[in-house]
Write a protein that binds this DNA or RNA. Structure first.
Lengths: 231, 231
DNA sequence: CGCAGCATTGACGAATGTCAAGTAGCGTGG
DNA sequence: CCACGCTACTTGACATTCGTCAATGCTGCG
């Protein structure tokens, strides 16, 4: 259980910030409000497990700060990362009683969490909550469908281009990508080895499509050419 | 629109068979009943498109007879089949207003269909319907997660073994697999070429793990050894 | 300042894709 | 009922992409 492994100070109770709720509607906040749930904040250290595949599904999580990977393993250790979760993202949602992927903090990470039971109870009487749950799961499904196309049919370079554009869309603030994950994580997300990822990035650098300020600080210099490469 | 392309006789109105509803609860029937929807039956010829990627999502489908593939295409024609749907399976569910994959009949196929609008309306007032929708989407998501692991990390032989066991589970009646799809479909599902699929099947045949009665009629002779190969 | 990961790069190998030829099965029409 | 032709399938030879193994370099943190 994650509450035992954490070394952070005692979890802090906090209000979902209502100032933000005018936006496209953050589904986590919406659900928490409808459920009358007070979300709890919680922190995990880099590489700490948040939940494991097969464990009972007890909470719904939203990232405040940090980043999370969710993955499946084969018996011999081969790993497929299904998704990276970034600040604002919700994860851990799962209508089945058990998690089907393992979740780990990629860097030191703080999440808000809401007990699954309260949410279920709210969904049983409130169709808005129920619809939000459906919508979030459907959003994960869309991502998975796109990712199956990538994994099954794209070349290494196309995968890396797609990855960069996805991250650019999701976390570019200053026109600069600050990747929280290492090359191995990227490889395990894209179905490649870390060496192949590194070679593709170097090639994009050589072509002037991106520039490294450090290995994980990347500036995209030509998004159009990158888009043309993602197939 | 599929109603224009169909050459079958006029759609026939029918009742959802209530005799079957004691079973593990068929979610399609459950939803139709809660929605007060009378499902319509409809037929498609082999290789006929049921809906296209990007088209408005107007119906929920359940297969009565036949088989359906849902897929995405890259611009140059590379195809990734996301799922095969067999009798009893529901497909076309999508909380977004547009389909994100194309659906085609693999063989001559009959479906029951329920208008999406009626279902949405029912879900807006009935939490049971809403939960069924969520559960079905979650079921698709689980399959997609498993399939990402296959596409990203399994070898050709492991993919084929996994495929055979999946089909065995889903459509083996007489201990014999009657595959409705061709080798190319299998390849596009597994992220392989049809030749690689064929070679893997031949190898399993040589090893005595399966037997062909014809190219698409396969008897599994040693499920245990096959399971050991799926990684 | 030095160590410990992380990343890059190179040489090579293996798995799978590509191209091509040949075969078998099946539906159609004579 | 048989012959034909089409399509799907199999098999082989070869090409290519990506993975593996190994050496080296970088860098960020203590």
């Amino acid at each position: 259980m994650h509450t035992q492994t954490i070394s952070a100070p005692a979890a802090k109770v906090l209000d979902i910030p209502h100032a933000l709720k005018a936006e496209p509607v953050d589904p986590f906040s919406a659900i928490a409000r409808f459920s009358g749930v007070i979300a709890t904040e919680f922190s995990y250290k880099k590489d700490e497990e948040i939940y494991g595949e097969g464990e009972p599904s007890e909470y719904l999580y939203q990232i405040s700060r940090g980043a999370v990977r969710t993955y499946k393993l084969l018996s011999d250790g081969r790993r497929q990362i299904g998704a990276f979760h970034l600040p604002g993202d919700v994860f851990g949602l799962d209508p089945s009683p058990e998690h089907r992927l393992t979740a780990e903090a990629i860097v030191d990470t703080t999440v808000r969490l809401a007990p699954r039971r309260s949410i279920e109870k709210a969904a049983a009487s409130n169709v808005h909550v129920a619809r939000h749950l459906w919508t979030m799961t459907a959003c994960d499904l869309r991502h998975a469908e796109d990712h199956m196309l990538l994994l099954g049919r794209k070349t290494a370079m196309e995968r890396v281009a797609t990855f960069l554009l996805e991250m650019d869309r999701r976390l570019a603030k200053t026109g600069m990508l600050a990747l929280p994950m290492c090359r191995r994580d990227i490889g395990d997300y894209l179905g490649l080895t870390l060496e192949t990822v590194s070679r593709a990035l170097s090639q994009l650098n050589d072509q002037g499509i991106l520039m490294f300020s450090s290995a994980r600080q990347i500036a995209l210099r030509n998004r159009q050419r990158l888009s043309a490469m993602e197939a």
